Computed example of a mutant assay.
Amino acid sequence: MGLTKRPDSYYVEFRVIDSADGKSLVLASGVQGARKKRWKVGCLNKTVAREMEAAIKTRILLGQEQTEQAKPVLFKEWAKTYLDMESVKTLRSYQDRVEIMGKQLIPFFGGKILGEIKPADVETYRGQRKKRNGSMASTQTINNDHIVLKHALNVAVRRDLLVSNPAARVPMPDPQNARDRVLSEEEWGKLYQAAKPHLQPVLLLAYQLGQRLSEIVNLTWDRVDLKRGFVTLRSQDTKTKKPRQVPITPDVRGTLQQLAKLRSLATRHVFLYQGEPLKDFRTAFRTALKDAGVIGFKFHDLRHCAATNLRRAGVDTTTAMQIVGHTSPQMWKRYNHIREEDLSQAATKLGKYLQQTTPRTLDGQAESR
């Protein structure tokens, strides 16, 4: 194939296929299905690059150039390559993956050859995973580690470094962590009133529109259309990587209009604290919960409130899912909670409907007696 010069180095390229035993490369210029393989010379000297090209070609002809699959790759080496990949760096969970790799997976799997990791090793990891204080980690925490490991090894499979993914052959148990905490109208009123002024608008968007925390704190004014009444989220703004339009309620519109009047020219962000983009309000949120006397509640539970309120308001499932950003009916059902009062109201509505559309059965029965 020849040489290619790039700013950092010369590169040697050949068209190759794997040998019959899968352990070495075979020159295959013009052969259908052959792939282009590139070697980095490491310098910008063309003479050295020509010598490297000849040496690599000789190794291939002699069957001495191993395939990637034949080369022993340690997990810690692959982990570094994996975390350096652009497709991984763009994931919203990238920083979590870096931490899980560095603090958990590499210390356990780091010295193992990638191809020698077995399902039993994954099971052993799950069994020994502990918190920093030495107690056993929760099932959800262990599952999070497992998901990162599984994805990293899936990428290795796609790159022909592994034949199969051992982490995919180990089941992840259901953490049984579904929450059903929804604020009553009284609790919501107390929480909102107890919140600091900079926190109130954030709580309102989460409670009425069901936006995720990251969607709220990263919201910029170019995403807000007060005239049309929409917040437009781009694919890079959402957890699901799918864009969506969120219609704003009258309360939210009024709040955003007030914030627009005080808008800072120093930043595009909508929600600020002391002139800076709002990032961490955990302390303020905990204080508001305490002052309001609301217990057993998390910020993410506000999405449950929004989903439940949309259903009670009679919004159809498809539209409601679009507003809060759910991609599956199963997730919608998980976030949508039915109280005893809802069931009673449903029976009342059904009774009124039957009275208007069917014969009066009970009166008929009384007359027949």
Rank of each mutant, 00 (worst) to 15 (best):
V122L: 15
D21A: 07
K242Q: 15
R282C: 10
S235R: 12
G364E: 10
V246M: 04
S214R: 08
S9W: 00
P7H: 11
V73M: 11
E123Q: 13
A260K: 14
Q257G: 11
K80I: 13
R50M: 14
V88C: 01
K5V: 06
K40N: 09
F281I: 02
A366V: 13
K46M: 09
K349S: 13
V88M: 01
E51M: 10
A168Q: 07
D84N: 06
I147N: 09
Y10T: 04
R92I: 05
E186D: 10
A70V: 02
D160K: 15
V88K: 01
Q66V: 01
L199Q: 02
R159F: 12
Q95I: 06
Q365V: 14
L302A: 10
D316W: 00
S235G: 01
L83V: 07
P359Q: 12
K241W: 13
V294Y: 05
P250W: 02
D251W: 12
E186T: 10
I295H: 13
P247I: 01
R179E: 06
Q330A: 10
H269Y: 15
S368Y: 09
V122K: 02
E340L: 12
G189C: 03
D174S: 13
L114H: 03
T47H: 13
I248G: 06
P201M: 00
M136P: 12
S164R: 13
P107K: 04
R263C: 01
Q345V: 09
E53V: 10
M172I: 07
E187M: 01
R228F: 12
L219N: 08
S214C: 11
L213T: 11
I113A: 14
K37C: 02
V182C: 14
S264A: 11
L226H: 04
S93A: 08
D280F: 07
A313D: 08
K239W: 06
L209H: 15
D363M: 10
Q245M: 12
A284R: 08
K112M: 15
G42M: 00
A346M: 09
L278M: 08
E116I: 04
G22I: 12
R181E: 00
L310T: 10
R282H: 15
A120N: 12
K239F: 05
K76M: 12
Q104R: 13
S164E: 14
H304R: 05
S184K: 09
